[in-house]
Computed example of a mutant assay.
Amino acid sequence: MNRRRTIMALGASAMAVGLLSAVAWLGGLRLNLTPSEPLGLWRIQAVGRAIAAGDLVFVCPPQMPLFKEARRRSYLARGLCPGGVAPLIKSVAALPGQHVEIGNDVRIDGELLPSSHLRRTDGAGRPLTPFAGGIVPPGYLYLHSPFASSYDSRYFGPTPDSGLLGFARPILTFDP
């Protein structure tokens, strides 16, 4: 009898967690467990205006070999974006037509992008290849995070704005 109750309780708990997860997903809620932005619960807010530099956004990365390698290296969490990765939370640092210069740091139209020092290797000592720089093409966004070890456009370059899910709005977050 106790075993049956335990199994029923576990089944009900699993169903409740599944239902809450589905409601959260459909309601645009996401859990961020990466240090690129504060940890915690975030909401995807629909975009009702033109994207501007400085906007904090959720973006699904494009399916391309560079991001497949990033997933293999565990730079990207598993999620429901195409390719099985979680959406990125990044700030828009440059828009189409702006010039991105890559050196030891990043410059946008000649202005230093704060917290943009490039690393030559990742935390496991593997080489990181920086983006070559250039003009952000139409339909693309240059994304950045102030976290020193963030995998962002410093390494993968501008990303298609077609992957834009919406603005990233914190609900319940904290900085570790």
Rank of each mutant, 00 (worst) to 15 (best):
A24W: 13
R78A: 11
R43V: 02
R119F: 11
A53Y: 15
M8G: 11
R49L: 09
A52V: 10
G11Y: 06
Q45G: 09
P130G: 04
D55W: 07
Y140H: 10
P96F: 15
I44F: 08
M15I: 02
L31E: 05
R107C: 00
W25S: 13
S145H: 08
P138V: 15
N2M: 06
G163Y: 13
G163L: 06
L33T: 15
P87K: 10
P160C: 10
P96C: 02
S116C: 09
K68F: 11
L143M: 14
G166W: 09
G157Q: 05
L112P: 01
G103M: 05
S149Q: 14
P137Q: 00
M1I: 08
G11C: 11
R49K: 08
R78G: 11
F131P: 02
Y75D: 01
A46Q: 12
D175G: 12
I171L: 12
A53I: 01
V23K: 02
L112G: 02
V100Q: 02
G84A: 10
P65A: 10
T121R: 14
V106K: 02
L165H: 04
T129I: 14
S74D: 03
P158T: 13
R71W: 12
V17I: 12
E101T: 05
P61R: 00
F67K: 00
A22M: 10
Y140D: 05
L76Y: 14
T121P: 03
R120G: 08
A70E: 03
P127D: 04
P170H: 04
G54N: 09
G84F: 12
P160T: 11
L31K: 08
N32M: 05
T159R: 09
L66D: 03
V106W: 00
S74I: 07
V106A: 05
A52W: 11
D175A: 14
Y140L: 07
L118K: 01
P170W: 03
P114C: 07
G163I: 06
R30Y: 03
F167L: 14
V17G: 00
P138W: 03
Y155E: 05
R73Q: 11
P82F: 04
V136I: 00
A22I: 14
Y142H: 11
T173E: 11
K68Q: 09
E101C: 02
G166C: 02
